Simulated assay, not measured.
Amino acid sequence: MLLKNETLTTPAFKDTLLGTSVTELKATPKNLWVGTDGRGVYSYSNSGVQHLKATDDLSVQTIIDEGNVLWLATNKGVKKVVLKTPLSESVITNSFYESDGLLQNNINDIFLKDGFVYAATDAGLSKIDPNDAVYKKSLQIYFENRSDTLTIKQNENRNITVSFYVTNYGSQQHLVYKYRLLPQQEEWIETQTQLLNFSSLPPEIICLK
Rank of each mutant, 00 (worst) to 15 (best):
A123E: 04
C207V: 15
K113P: 01
T20F: 08
L181W: 04
I205S: 15
F198A: 03
A54N: 06
L32I: 14
G101K: 14
K113S: 10
T167G: 03
L102K: 05
T55E: 00
A133V: 11
Y118C: 14
N31T: 08
K30H: 14
E144L: 12
Y165F: 10
E186V: 15
S21W: 15
K53F: 13
Y44W: 08
L182C: 07
C207H: 12
N155Y: 11
L150T: 15
G38V: 01
N157T: 15
N145C: 07
W33V: 08
R146T: 15
V22S: 09
L87S: 06
S21C: 03
D132P: 05
R158I: 09
I128M: 00
N197M: 13
S171G: 15
L195A: 05
I206S: 02
Y179C: 08
N106C: 06
Q185E: 09
Y118A: 09
G170T: 09
F164R: 15
L125E: 00
I64H: 02
P86V: 05
K30A: 14
K113Y: 08
L175I: 00
L175R: 10
E190D: 14
N106K: 14
R180G: 12
V134D: 06
A12M: 04
V134L: 12
P203N: 08
P130F: 07
G77Y: 01
L196P: 02
L196N: 04
E204L: 14
N5A: 11
Y118I: 10
L112V: 00
Q192H: 00
G170K: 13
F116C: 00
K26C: 07
A27R: 13
L182P: 00
N159F: 15
I92T: 14
Q104C: 10
V78L: 07
V78I: 13
S21E: 06
T28G: 05
N106P: 04
C207S: 12
G38L: 03
L103N: 11
G35V: 01
V82N: 09
T55Q: 01
L125A: 10
L58E: 00
L87R: 07
D114G: 01
V82C: 06
I141N: 15
L195W: 10
L125T: 14
